[in-house]
Design a protein around this nucleic acid. Structure first.
Length: 522
DNA sequence: GTTGAGCGTT
């Protein structure tokens, strides 16, 4: 049976009695029904005379140790509502960012909007709960008619909490606000806090700072230093692996906030530098070469970190053998890239196919990386000894038909570009750009855009051979090398294990190479 | 000019 609790807006105000629940907690929604905009509760501790906060867990306010007692509780309102001065908004972006980063807002879906409600009205309604960063009403693109739902995003988690805790009367209709099913990445990260998620499909994500920069720079997405995205495992020298790295989500650090959550695979697709990536919760998206057994654990700044260095190395060796097998059958599979030889074709391409732009020949690209990225089907042209191939896993509209040509040399003699769907997508944009007269041919993209010439940059390092594009002298490449060295150091410190050793221990596999840094900006 | 338990052109 419920009892009542005295709550006032502030000291000196008249209290209202609010019913508590059977477990003697007070629902935040109950509180908010009487005091819209409240985000918490406090009371004055009779001993210290200081204000004490009331524990709030998942929308429930929990009584102090000795019960609610007879004292009057006071509402707590978000600081942003006090509006000391507006010029705070302008200055100290760094500090502001740091503040924001503690919060874990996600886009919220507003369901049941009246057909007539505009984005402006939506925004105005929710601004009473706090700063509204985004308000959208989803409309039919042709008619412009509202679909009756929209999305909002708040600047603070407190606002988000309060809005989620109640129903909303907007323009005469009751509307629900929920976390959308297609939730953003941060929702995944926060739900897996202290655990890990995997990042896949990228060649460039080594390092938290880079990720942060990429996210803040591209697409207006924000980074939240909330969880620590610790890159591990992804070994750029491992050309046959799927370019999948792991990240840990633990403690305070960086958190990305963007992407589309796929409810069936429980992964999130998002993009960095225009490269699409995937993140999934550990149990649902684990690259096959990262068994969850026998991993090592250590800690960084007290955060638990798991990594799979040794496993990774093992799988590298295994894959290399596979490729070798295929390689030895190269002549017999020549010209037979039909479906019956699909697997073989994969390996062929992994090993020694040069992938050319079908239309412009701008790039000489090389298949490497994840098999899943391509080859829905291939057509071998006997006269030209070329294979027309569509890149897999794409929507039809995104398919990029290309030709794959056999390359006679050893795989180590050709440049290794990642020729996955994402890169192709970027190149298409570049092509459009260049067709519009841009003189910037973007060497910074780290690819040999002038097509077929195979360039292997010379050995730049005492124990590394770079099979990189012809941009090894560029600033980007220098920067990239610098970053790679930093990562190396980081990895070594973490695990007492260096990537250089990875290479040597796996002998004849192509050595570490510089990965093109994709810096397409659009 | 209609509808209502819906999930987002990035």
């Amino acid at each position: 049976m419920s009892s009542y609790l005295q709550v006032a807006e502030d000291e000196g105000e008249e209290p209202i009695e609010l019913p508590t629940e059977d477990d003697s907690t007070l629902l935040l929604s109950t509180l908010a029904a009487q005091f819209p905009g409240t985000c918490g509760l406090k009371y004055r501790n009779p001993e210290s005379r200081a204000m004490r906060g009331v524990r709030l867990v998942e929308g429930r306010l929990h009584p102090p140790e000795n019960g609610w007692g007879n004292c009057v509780y006071y509402c707590v309102f978000p600081k942003e509502n006090k509006r000391k001065s507006d010029d705070h908004l302008e200055n100290s972006t760094a500090k502001t960012k740091r503040m924001e980063t503690k919060l874990k807002c996600s886009d919220l879906i507003v369901l049941g909007l009246p057909w007539k409600t505009t984005e402006q009205q939506l925004r105005e309604y929710f601004e009473s709960f706090g700063e509204v960063l985004m308000a959208q009403v989803k409309k039919d693109p042709k008619s412009g008619q509202s679909k009756g739902f929209g999305f909002i995003r708040f600047g603070t988690y407190e606002s988000q909490m309060r809005v989620l805790a109640q129903r909303h009367m907007i323009d005469g209709r009751w509307c629900d606000v929920k976390i959308p099913n297609s939730k953003s990445l941060d929702a995944v990260c926060s739900s897996t806090r202290g655990g890990e998620v995997y990042i896949g499909g990228t060649t460039t994500l080594y390092e938290p700072i880079d990720i942060a920069a990429a996210y803040t720079e591209y697409g207006g997405n924000q980074m939240y230093p909330y969880n620590d995205l610790v890159p591990y495992v992804y070994d750029p020298s491992y050309q046959f692996s799927s370019p999948i790295g792991g990240v840990c989500v633990a403690g305070d650090g960086y958190r990305v906030n963007s992407g589309t959550y796929d409810t069936t695979t429980r992964t999130v697709s998002y993009s960095v530098n225009g490269v699409y990536n995937k993140v999934g919760e550990t149990d649902h998206y684990r690259p096959s070469h990262m068994s969850d057994m026998s991993h090592k654990a250590d800690s960084i700044s007290g955060y638990q970190v798991e990594h799979y260095m040794n496993l990774h190395r093992m799988s590298l060796k295994k894959d290399y053998n596979d490729v070798h097998y295929s390689d030895s059958h190269r002549s017999s599979s020549h010209g037979q890239f039909g479906s019956q030889n699909r697997d073989k074709a994969y390996h062929e391409r992994d090993l020694d196919m040069t992938f050319d732009r079908y239309d412009s020949g701008e790039r000489s690209l090389r298949f490497s990386g994840s098999h899943e990225h391509y080859s829905d089907y291939t057509i071998y042209d006997r006269t030209e000894e070329k294979v027309s191939s569509s890149l897999g896993n794409l929507h039809d509209s995104e398919r990029d038909y290309s030709k794959v040509r056999r390359h006679s040399g050893s795989s180590r003699d050709v440049e290794h570009h990642y020729a996955d769907r994402y890169l192709v997508k970027i190149s298409r944009r570049e092509r459009e750009k260049s067709h519009h007269g841009s003189s910037d041919r973007s060497y910074k993209h780290g690819n040999n855009i002038h097509g077929h010439k195979r360039s292997r940059s010379s050995t730049k390092d005492s124990n590394k051979t770079y099979y990189g594009p012809d941009v090894s002298d560029s600033d980007e490449m220098a920067y990239h090398k610098h970053k790679s060295a930093e990562l190396e150091e980081w990895v070594q410190k973490r695990s007492g294990y260096s990537r250089g050793e990875t290479y040597h221990s796996s002998a004849s596999v192509a050595g570490p190479r510089s990965i093109p840094v994709i810096q397409s900006r659009y």
